[in-house]
Write a protein that binds this DNA or RNA. Sequence first.
RNA 1: GGCGACAUAGUUCAAUGGAUAGAAUAGAAGUUUCCUAAACUUUUGAUAUGAGUUCGAUUCUCAUUGUUGCUACCA
Length: 601
Amino acid sequence: MLPLSHHIIQSLNQALKDLFGLENQKIELQPTRKEFKGSHTFVTFGIAKQAHQSPEQTAQKVGEFLLEKNLIQSFEVVKGFLNLTLPNNIWQKAFIQAFENEDFGKNEKKNEKILIEYCSPNTNKPIHLGHLRNIFLGWSLSQILEADGYDVQKCILVNDRGIHICKSMLAYQKYGNGETPENANMKGDHLIGKYYVLFSNLHKEYLDKQVEKGEITAEEAKKPTATSPILQEAQTMLQLWEKGDKAVLALWQKMNNWVLEGFKETYKNIGIGFDKWYYESNTYLLGKEIVAEGLEKGIFYQKEDKSIWIDLTAEKLDHKLVQRGDGTSVYITQDLGTADLKYTDFEMQKSIYVVGNEQDYHFKVLFAILKKFNRAYAQGSYHLSYGMVELPSGKMKSREGTVVDADDIINEMIRIAKGETAESGKLENLQKLGEQELNNIYEMIGIGAIKYFLLKVDAKKNMLFNPDESVEFEGDASPYIQYNHARIKTILRRAISENIIFDASTCKDYLDWHDSESDLLQNLLQFPNVIAEASKEYAPYLLTQFAYETAKMYSKFFHDCSIFQAPTPESRAFRLVLSALTGKVLKKTMFLLGINVPEMM
RNA sequence: GGCGACAUAGUUCAAUGGAUAGAAUAGAAGUUUCCUAAACUUUUGAUAUGAGUUCGAUUCUCAUUGUUGCUACCA
């Protein structure tokens, strides 16, 4: 939706009624393309037939009607497109309102509670670039929904139990030699990750030997059912864990804490957080209760080997295991429990799961089961499925060492930000800030760059990260936007230090705008609509586009219109007000993306 | 095998069924006595293939080719 659309649609409806006797028509209004004059374009193809006119004639007549009634400044007909130009004073009124509104960009309260689950890491290895996409999406989305008027709560589900956790535990138990994060001087999650890799290698080595000996075929070794003594040990350990074996639990507690400490450090560094932490180790028992309930109600069935299943062939989803033959729970078991617990805790209308698209099938099954149970929240449950981050060589695989580690890439980005700053010769101006402030700026730039990079692609799609090329710092990238914000702040500081007054009253007599002034102004007024759209579509990338467009328009304005050499005090005041609103909008937009902007850089 | 997703400049990404398919980057050429050159001008370059639906298709339908994900006791 364009700014001032409401006003125009009203006028168009009036025109269609008076000219052609048409009522309740769907008005197709688009932003006018840059190469044409005007801001709003009425597309007449749909109406023309009913008006018994050609699209051109329809557009012409409607244009003349609007002009005659003084509703527009001018119009232009191109084929069936009616391009409308509104008088500047209408724009100005909206502009000043936006400038004076501290909450510009906050939409009306919706009185609806949304719970967002995101991140959901496994506590057996450190987080990687794919997790970062998840985390930034979840965080940004919650900021956006909140700005759009929803009551938003954020939660994380820690996958801290299961066979994969036992794998790293077992490897540590066998070969750990009392290593700790302290004595190894490693973040806890990285240390545990080391043992997970070790387990994988031991398992793989065994299978390779079996293949060599001709005991099994290479095909069989690749199957998930391929087993090894060490894997069997891990399975035994999982059973002991579920039985509450003290030694196993103690080891588990110790290792989990190390990992969680590591995660928390990373979350702190990237400036994200959660309102509530759920642990699978707490919710899986709830899940088992639900399995028992389902068995009783006949929703599930039990095979002879005691494994429990659900038949979802009617939903075209096949049969699905919900509890293993040995009585231990699987992924979906605990998800059932967590779902119930979430509703008890929050009574939300909507429950969003930010989880990768490799789990599309899992969530179809989960929601289908919830519906069979007639859970009140089943209808409002939504899987926000995002695409994988791929490398030029394909999917990231921890076993093959092709994983881009989250902490590594973040540190790398900050390092580059520092280097670029030094290289650009900006250090002289920034020196007075002191080391602490400087480091803050490097972090804003570096972390901002990776956040923007991951958020600018439509979440639904897979995307590519090439480790050989650095994440961009120029063009459609976060530093460019931060740079424009810093530039604006510097100008405003100067204006204030020179005692130049700029506010609504001092700027309102200047209406003879340069094209780059009116383009920028009109663009800024779209902000609330962009938020509404991003919220409706769960699409943070719309805000990266808006931020970039805005920054680019400001750059153009900055180039075309001198502020301190402006021809009159009124035009100077207007340009300062325009700069101030741009700065505010850029800062708020970036805030919704989870990116901070510096006052200078 | 079954089910799903994707395919747009050299590369990475855009485009509620609408105008001459936009950006960024890379390539070519320019701009610093002038409010921050992480900037600004100019320029080269793309809808996998074949049908269909209609005033109009990158978008909807079908087929083909290619890439990728899931596929019953990993989470």
